[in-house]
Design a protein around this nucleic acid. Structure first.
Length: 485
RNA sequence: GCGGAGUUAGUCUAGCCUGGUUAUGACGUCAGCUUCCCAAGCUGAAGGCCGCGGGUUCAAAUCUCGCACUCCGCACCA
């Protein structure tokens, strides 16, 4: 199924939809999750906690979305998370200054250069607007952070462009109070904000989006002393260094140098296992090693985890080895101590980051799970049972003869234990199909036989087959079938 | 932000060129009847300031201008 099919499902069944849509001044890049979307997101986050945070004994925090200016002076976002742009006085077209200069004159000016350098290059080389030959205004920086004013005087602060800065800033306290020991992972789920020039494709490029970030702090001298590596050494991953992705085990990837060390390989391995369990078709996934040019300004080595969808290859996770870039800059700016003891050695930890885009991940799960069952004239969302927004539908075959009351009884008994949807009205086949579309793996139906022997039918979403089970066994059955792996 | 194409009910859509009563149809939704395990049938109902704002006109979904949003390319990114 393609992007449009997923979009239609999302709008019709309450997965997600545009924010503020009743108003004409609603801005692009903001979307809401409806009930089904929240259900799926909650299941995804819980799986993330199980497969990454708990598996690795990480600490989870929940930091502020608004952070002070100093944080971003230290992190480099104030100067580097910005594009130099120039605007034509005549036709108002906007261009990337560094790009336009290198395209027309072959002069390479780094995008972080002073604005004066761009203006100088433009006047010296007599560069005109490519669309109308007009003159340019002075160049300026377009910073992708949202600036906010705090208090009556509007003290400058920013909506965080990535969740991880609070992890870095909080690191000294967390390490001390949580009895930290290297290597240690600190994780956070939350919103981040980027003032994208052109947000597009619903959940795929947002101005306000969810990230699940993990920062692992480590001793850079011990990147190959990593016992846990044996847990993932045989995990098969696909890695692309140049053009074509190659499949190999994590162990092979370290041995042939594709992945620099066991430490990084371990985390790529558990990340892949997580995504497989989330319902991503990992045959259509790869880790792509980024070139020097593509890497973010803070990264030393970087792998993107990408999956193939009808909207192209989507980058779901950025895995960056950030070295001591962040702790060193916060230490310098704040004059606080960020070094810790590893054994009897004092060390400024290095950081490996797993920065996951939740919204994109959810989209990919939806696209990889949605199928058109032409034979049975239905759309089925084949989510893993533990990922489904609704675990089970509870239906009365008909309302009369006491079936409704019996159905209500069963619903009351399990509604607080599972995500349950009760439905009495309409044709039974129609009700099954509605449940199929939001990925509900099971449907219990109360029929006349139920009144005689206290059994119900249990219908499976994917096969449409039904078993009869005792009412007394419903709870244990669902518990077993919908539990996380 | 640029170029191109669009925007009519939850979804898809007719009408627009050639302005004129109450805006078309399908699917979906809700209620009832019927059936009694897979989108059947019958009856009825709800749901639209035709993306937003201005202009032209006696009259605008329709002509016109501006803006916003969506989609496709460019550039940027989780």
């Amino acid at each position: 199924m393609n992007y449009d099919n997923v979009m239609k499902l999302a709008l019709e069944r309450g997965f997600y939809f545009p924010s503020c849509e009743v108003y004409a001044d609603a801005q692009a890049g903001f979307w809401e999750y409806g009930p089904a979307g929240v259900g799926l997101k909650n299941k995804f986050v819980e799986l993330w906690r199980r497969e990454l945070v708990r598996r690795d004994n990480m600490l989870e925090i929940d930091g502020s979305q608004i952070m002070s200016q100093s944080v971003f002076e230290a992190s480099g976002h104030l100067s580097s998370f910005a594009d130099p742009i120039i605007k034509c006085k005549n036709c108002k077209s906007t261009f990337r200054a560094d790009k336009l200069i290198s395209d027309t004159t072959k002069i390479e000016i780094p995008e972080s250069a002073d604005l004066i350098d761009f203006d100088k290059a433009i006047s010296e080389n007599n560069i005109k607007c490519p669309s109308c030959q007009g003159e340019f205004e002075s160049s300026r920086k377009f910073n992708m952070m949202f600036k906010v004013g705090i208090g009556p005087d509007g003290e400058p602060a920013y909506l965080r462009p990535e969740t991880c800065q609070s992890i870095f800033v909080d690191f000294p306290r967390l390490y001390k109070t949580m009895r930290g020991k290297l290597p240690i992972g600190i994780a956070q789920i939350g919103k981040s904000f980027r003032n994208e020039i052109s947000p597009r494709q619903s959940l795929l490029r947002l101005r306000e989006f969810y990230q699940a970030e993990i920062e692992i702090f480590c001793n850079p001298d011990k990147l190959n002393e990593f016992e846990k590596f044996s847990e993932v050494q045989d995990v098969l991953i696909r890695i692309q260094v140049d053009d074509t992705p190659k499949q190999m085990t994590c162990k092979e990837a370290v041995e042939n140098g594709t992945i620099p060390n066991r430490f990084v390989a371990y985390y790529l391995g558990i990340l892949l296992e997580f995504y497989e369990k989330s319902g991503i078709d990992i045959i259509r996934s790869k880790f792509r090693k980024l070139s020097e040019k593509e890497k973010a300004f803070y990264a030393e080595v970087a792998f993107d985890f990408e999956v193939e969808t009808t909207a192209g290859w989507l980058e779901l996770v950025a895995c960056n080895y950030r070295s001591d870039y962040d702790l060193a800059s916060h230490a310098k700016k704040s004059k606080e101590k960020f070094e810790v003891m590893d054994g009897d050695v004092k060390v400024l930890p290095h950081v490996f980051e797993i920065s996951m885009g939740i919204d994109r991940s959810l989209y990919s799960i939806l696209e990889h799970s949605l199928r058109d069952d032409k034979e049975n004239e239905r759309i089925v969302l084949s989510l893993k049972p533990y990922m489904a927004p609704i675990h089970v539908g509870i239906l009365s075959l008909v309302k009369k003869d006491g079936l409704k009351e019996k159905t209500d009884e069963i619903y009351q008994a399990i509604k607080s234990k599972f995500d349950v949807f009760l439905d009495h009205s309409g044709a039974i086949g129609r009700r099954y199909r509605r449940l199929d579309e939001i990925g509900t793996p099971f449907a219990i139906t109360v029929d006349h036989q139920t009144l005689e022997d206290d059994t119900v039918t249990m219908r499976m979403r994917d096969s449409m087959k039904q078993n009869r089970i005792k009412i007394s066994e419903i709870e244990s059955y669902l518990l077993k079938e919908t539990s996380y792996p």
